[in-house]
Protein backbone atom coordinates (compact mmCIF):
# COMPACT_ATOMS: atom_id res chain seq x y z
CA UNK A 1 0.00 0.00 0.00
CA UNK A 2 1.35 3.40 -0.92
CA UNK A 3 1.57 5.77 1.96
CA UNK A 4 2.78 8.70 -0.15
CA UNK A 5 -0.52 10.41 0.30
CA UNK A 6 -0.65 9.55 4.04
CA UNK A 7 -2.44 12.33 5.85
CA UNK A 8 -0.50 15.24 7.31
CA UNK A 9 -1.84 17.95 9.60
CA UNK A 10 -0.95 21.54 10.42
CA UNK A 11 -2.61 23.81 12.92
CA UNK A 12 -3.36 27.25 11.48
CA UNK A 13 -5.37 29.88 13.26
CA UNK A 14 -6.37 27.34 15.89
CA UNK A 15 -7.80 24.98 13.29
CA UNK A 16 -6.57 21.71 11.79
CA UNK A 17 -5.49 21.89 8.13
CA UNK A 18 -5.54 18.38 6.69
CA UNK A 19 -3.76 17.13 3.57
CA UNK A 20 -3.67 13.62 2.14
CA UNK A 21 -5.51 10.44 3.10
CA UNK A 22 -6.50 9.66 6.67
CA UNK A 23 -8.03 6.27 6.06
CA UNK A 24 -7.71 3.45 3.61
CA UNK A 25 -10.66 1.11 3.01
CA UNK A 26 -10.14 -2.54 2.08
CA UNK A 27 -12.69 -5.14 1.00
CA UNK A 28 -13.66 -7.68 3.64
CA UNK A 29 -13.28 -11.44 3.32
CA UNK A 30 -15.62 -14.20 4.45
CA UNK A 31 -14.53 -16.50 7.30
CA UNK A 32 -15.71 -20.10 6.85
CA UNK A 33 -15.34 -23.32 8.83
CA UNK A 34 -14.20 -26.76 7.62
CA UNK A 35 -17.66 -27.44 6.21
CA UNK A 36 -17.56 -24.25 4.21
CA UNK A 37 -20.24 -22.60 6.36
CA UNK A 38 -20.08 -18.86 6.87
CA UNK A 39 -18.90 -17.95 10.40
CA UNK A 40 -18.10 -14.24 9.97
CA UNK A 41 -16.08 -11.67 8.01
CA UNK A 42 -12.77 -9.81 8.37
CA UNK A 43 -13.05 -6.05 8.89
CA UNK A 44 -9.77 -4.54 7.64
CA UNK A 45 -9.08 -0.84 7.94
CA UNK A 46 -6.23 1.64 8.27
CA UNK A 47 -6.75 4.93 10.07
CA UNK A 48 -4.59 7.86 11.16
CA UNK A 49 -5.44 9.62 14.40
CA UNK A 50 -4.75 13.30 15.02
CA UNK A 51 -3.29 13.54 18.52
CA UNK A 52 -2.41 16.78 20.33
CA UNK A 53 0.22 17.00 23.09
CA UNK A 54 -1.22 20.20 24.57
CA UNK A 55 0.84 21.38 27.53
CA UNK A 56 3.24 18.45 27.17
CA UNK A 57 4.36 19.57 23.70
CA UNK A 58 7.52 21.31 25.06
CA UNK A 59 8.67 18.01 26.57
CA UNK A 60 8.50 16.12 23.27
CA UNK A 61 9.90 19.05 21.24
CA UNK A 62 12.89 19.35 23.59
CA UNK A 63 13.82 15.67 23.40
CA UNK A 64 14.77 16.36 19.78
CA UNK A 65 17.05 19.15 21.06
CA UNK A 66 18.76 16.87 23.58
CA UNK A 67 16.94 18.21 26.62
CA UNK A 68 14.96 16.40 29.30
CA UNK A 69 12.28 18.62 30.81
CA UNK A 70 10.35 18.15 34.03
CA UNK A 71 7.96 20.36 35.93
CA UNK A 72 7.86 21.83 39.42
CA UNK A 73 5.08 22.98 41.72
CA UNK A 74 5.79 26.55 42.81
CA UNK A 75 2.58 27.18 44.76
CA UNK A 76 3.85 28.28 48.21
CA UNK A 77 0.61 27.10 49.84
CA UNK A 78 0.72 23.57 48.37
CA UNK A 79 1.80 20.49 50.34
CA UNK A 80 3.73 19.43 47.25
CA UNK A 81 5.48 22.85 46.92
CA UNK A 82 8.91 22.33 45.38
CA UNK A 83 8.14 18.80 44.14
CA UNK A 84 9.66 18.04 40.77
CA UNK A 85 7.78 15.78 38.38
CA UNK A 86 9.37 13.58 35.74
CA UNK A 87 7.22 12.39 33.94
CA UNK A 88 6.32 15.94 33.21
CA UNK A 89 2.99 16.94 34.78
CA UNK A 90 1.33 20.05 33.39
CA UNK A 91 -0.55 20.68 36.64
CA UNK A 92 0.46 19.84 40.21
CA UNK A 93 -1.49 16.73 41.27
CA UNK A 94 -2.18 18.25 44.69
CA UNK A 95 -3.14 21.93 44.14
CA UNK A 96 -3.72 21.78 40.35
CA UNK A 97 -1.65 24.95 39.84
CA UNK A 98 0.09 25.13 36.48
CA UNK A 99 3.58 23.77 37.12
CA UNK A 100 6.75 25.54 36.04
CA UNK A 101 8.87 23.82 33.40
CA UNK A 102 12.38 22.95 34.60
CA UNK A 103 15.35 21.60 32.65
CA UNK A 104 16.33 18.26 34.21
CA UNK A 105 19.05 17.36 31.70
CA UNK A 106 21.96 18.16 34.01
CA UNK A 107 20.36 16.39 36.99
CA UNK A 108 19.77 13.32 34.83
CA UNK A 109 23.36 13.40 33.56
CA UNK A 110 24.75 13.61 37.09
CA UNK A 111 22.64 11.35 39.21
CA UNK A 112 20.27 8.99 37.42
CA UNK A 113 20.12 5.34 38.42
CA UNK A 114 18.08 2.25 37.57
CA UNK A 115 15.35 1.63 40.17
CA UNK A 116 14.11 -1.52 38.43
CA UNK A 117 14.13 -3.02 34.96
CA UNK A 118 12.89 -5.87 32.81
CA UNK A 119 13.92 -7.50 29.56
CA UNK A 120 11.40 -8.82 27.06
CA UNK A 121 11.50 -10.49 23.68
CA UNK A 122 7.75 -10.02 23.32
CA UNK A 123 6.12 -6.92 21.99
CA UNK A 124 2.71 -5.89 20.78
CA UNK A 125 1.85 -4.99 17.20
CA UNK A 126 3.25 -1.64 15.97
CA UNK A 127 6.38 -1.89 18.13
CA UNK A 128 9.35 -0.11 16.54
CA UNK A 129 12.04 -0.81 19.18
CA UNK A 130 14.69 -3.45 18.59
CA UNK A 131 14.14 -6.68 20.55
CA UNK A 132 14.81 -7.69 23.22
CA UNK A 133 13.66 -4.46 24.82
CA UNK A 134 15.40 -3.58 28.08
CA UNK A 135 12.95 -1.44 30.04
CA UNK A 136 14.52 0.68 32.80
CA UNK A 137 12.79 2.77 35.42
CA UNK A 138 15.07 5.63 36.25
CA UNK A 139 15.20 7.66 39.46
CA UNK A 140 16.91 11.02 39.89
CA UNK A 141 18.03 12.96 42.90
CA UNK A 142 15.40 15.41 44.10
CA UNK A 143 12.62 13.97 41.94
CA UNK A 144 9.60 12.38 43.57
CA UNK A 145 8.75 10.07 40.66
CA UNK A 146 10.48 7.30 38.69
CA UNK A 147 10.56 7.61 34.89
CA UNK A 148 10.10 4.65 32.53
CA UNK A 149 12.39 4.31 29.53
CA UNK A 150 14.61 1.82 27.70
CA UNK A 151 18.28 0.91 27.59
CA UNK A 152 19.49 0.23 24.01
CA UNK A 153 23.15 -0.30 25.08
CA UNK A 154 24.43 -2.63 27.83
CA UNK A 155 22.69 -4.86 30.35
CA UNK A 156 20.55 -3.29 33.11
CA UNK A 157 21.12 -3.80 36.83
CA UNK A 158 19.37 -2.23 39.80
CA UNK A 159 21.29 0.79 41.07
CA UNK A 160 23.27 1.12 37.81
CA UNK A 161 24.20 4.70 36.92
CA UNK A 162 22.76 5.77 33.58
CA UNK A 163 22.67 8.88 31.43
CA UNK A 164 20.02 10.03 28.95
CA UNK A 165 20.51 9.94 25.20
CA UNK A 166 18.30 11.63 22.63
CA UNK A 167 17.16 10.93 19.07
CA UNK A 168 18.35 14.30 17.79
CA UNK A 169 19.14 13.36 14.19
CA UNK A 170 15.81 11.98 13.01
CA UNK A 171 13.39 12.55 15.90
CA UNK A 172 9.99 10.88 16.05
CA UNK A 173 8.74 13.44 18.61
CA UNK A 174 7.57 10.59 20.84
CA UNK A 175 8.86 9.10 24.08
CA UNK A 176 11.12 6.71 22.17
CA UNK A 177 13.33 9.72 21.31
CA UNK A 178 14.57 9.39 24.92
CA UNK A 179 16.67 6.39 25.95
CA UNK A 180 19.28 5.60 28.62
CA UNK A 181 22.77 4.14 28.46
CA UNK A 182 25.24 3.10 31.17
CA UNK A 183 27.44 5.95 32.42
CA UNK A 184 30.71 5.90 30.48
CA UNK A 185 29.15 4.74 27.19
CA UNK A 186 30.99 6.27 24.21
CA UNK A 187 29.20 8.40 21.60
CA UNK A 188 30.32 5.88 18.96
CA UNK A 189 28.41 3.12 20.79
CA UNK A 190 25.04 4.91 20.63
CA UNK A 191 22.28 3.66 18.33
CA UNK A 192 21.82 5.40 15.00
CA UNK A 193 20.41 8.89 15.26
CA UNK A 194 21.08 9.24 19.01
CA UNK A 195 23.42 11.64 20.76
CA UNK A 196 24.09 12.81 24.30
CA UNK A 197 22.27 16.01 23.35
Amino acid sequence: MSTEARGKVRVEGGKYRLNGKFHYAFPNDPIRNEEGELMGVTNPRDVTHIHMYGGEAPFFENLSKGKLLGTKCENPDCDAHGSVFVPFRIHCPDCLWKNTIVDMTETANKGASVHTFMITERTGAFNTLEKPIRFVNVEFEGVSTILMGYLPVGEPEMGMKVVPIFQTKSPTFTIIDLAWVPQGTLESELPEGFSFG
Binding site: F117, M118, T120, R122, G124, I175
Partner: peptide
Protein backbone atom coordinates in the same frame (compact mmCIF):
# COMPACT_ATOMS: atom_id res chain seq x y z
CA UNK B 1 -1.08 2.45 29.62
CA UNK B 2 -0.26 6.13 29.03
CA UNK B 3 -0.37 6.54 25.24
CA UNK B 4 2.45 9.08 25.09
CA UNK B 5 4.75 7.95 27.87
CA UNK B 6 4.43 4.17 27.96
CA UNK B 7 2.59 2.58 25.02
CA UNK B 8 5.26 3.48 22.40
CA UNK B 9 7.72 1.52 24.57
CA UNK B 10 7.15 -1.90 23.05
CA UNK B 11 3.33 -1.78 22.95
CA UNK B 12 3.42 -4.56 25.56
CA UNK B 13 1.61 -4.21 28.88
CA UNK B 14 3.49 -7.10 30.45
CA UNK B 15 6.56 -4.88 30.25
CA UNK B 16 5.01 -2.12 32.32
CA UNK B 17 3.92 -4.72 34.88
CA UNK B 18 7.12 -6.76 34.93
CA UNK B 19 9.29 -3.89 36.16
CA UNK B 20 7.25 -4.11 39.36
CA UNK B 21 7.59 -7.88 39.44
CA UNK B 22 11.34 -7.49 39.01
CA UNK B 23 11.51 -5.06 41.93
Amino acid sequence: ADKDWETPLGHIYTGYYAVMAQK
